[in-house]
């Protein structure tokens, strides 16, 4: 009887050890305070709607003098990585959302690539003085974050600011921002 009890304890211990060793550990996964794809979708949707609704754009007609927008990649002043393809990708989606809203046709707006990008694609006939549409405005974005970090957590409050700049006067024609905040908790084993 006593032996059976000892065996039981041993079996129980082995079971606990096996369960801990085999089944108790989940695969680690990425869980950061970085901006996500969902943020990119939300921010570009919001910003394109905001720009379209701005008085400067909404008051324009197809017969207004043409505005030519050039776009640069996002300037990253946050505390997280953002690679070039992401920086361009955000602006590309912004432009696509604007194009989809017919802003080009209804508000007499044209988009051009930044000069360096254009040169890359059209090296043979690149002539900045003549051939290229002269930009009148620049659409730009700058991301910043307020980052708080400690051993047990990290929090990033993002301000993703977008601007439409009049290149002749330097006046900011339109400005809006997307804000979001992320926080992750770390345990002492992290």
């Amino acid at each position: 009887m006593r032996h059976r009890g000892i065996k039981g304890w041993i079996a129980c211990a082995v079971g606990v050890f096996a369960a801990l060793g085999a089944g108790g550990c989940a695969a680690p996964r990425v869980n950061t305070t970085m901006l996500t794809t969902a943020d990119v979708v939300r921010m570009t949707d919001q910003m394109s709607a905001s720009l379209n609704a701005s008085p400067e754009i909404a008051s324009r007609t197809p017969d207004s003098p043409r505005w030519v927008f050039t776009m640069d990649r996002v300037a990253n002043r946050t505390e997280h990585l953002l690679d070039d393809s992401e920086k361009w990708g955000i602006m590309a989606r912004f432009r696509v959302r604007l194009t989809a809203s017919n802003v080009a046709r209804d508000r007499a707006v044209a988009f051009v690539l930044p000069a360096a990008e254009w040169e890359r694609y059209a090296r043979e006939f690149y002539d900045p003085a003549q051939a290229r549409l002269r930009p009148t405005h620049a659409l730009r974005a700058e991301f910043r974050s307020d980052t708080r970090s400690a051993i047990g957590s990290r929090a990033d409050a993002y301000l993703c600011a977008f601007q439409l700049l009049d290149l002749e006067t330097g006046r900011i024609v339109w400005e809006d921002a997307y804000e979001t905040k992320y926080r992750v908790l770390r345990n002492s084993f992290d």
Binding site: L20, G23, G24, C25, A26, P28, R29, V30, N31, T32, T33, M34, H80, S153, R154, V184, L185, R186, N187, F189, D190
Partner: peptide, 12 residues
């Protein structure tokens, strides 16, 4: 940069 890459089972 990820938080809690070690879950409770792994910590134990």
């Amino acid at each position: 940069e990820s938080g809690s890459v070690n879950d409770e089972g792994r910590i134990l």
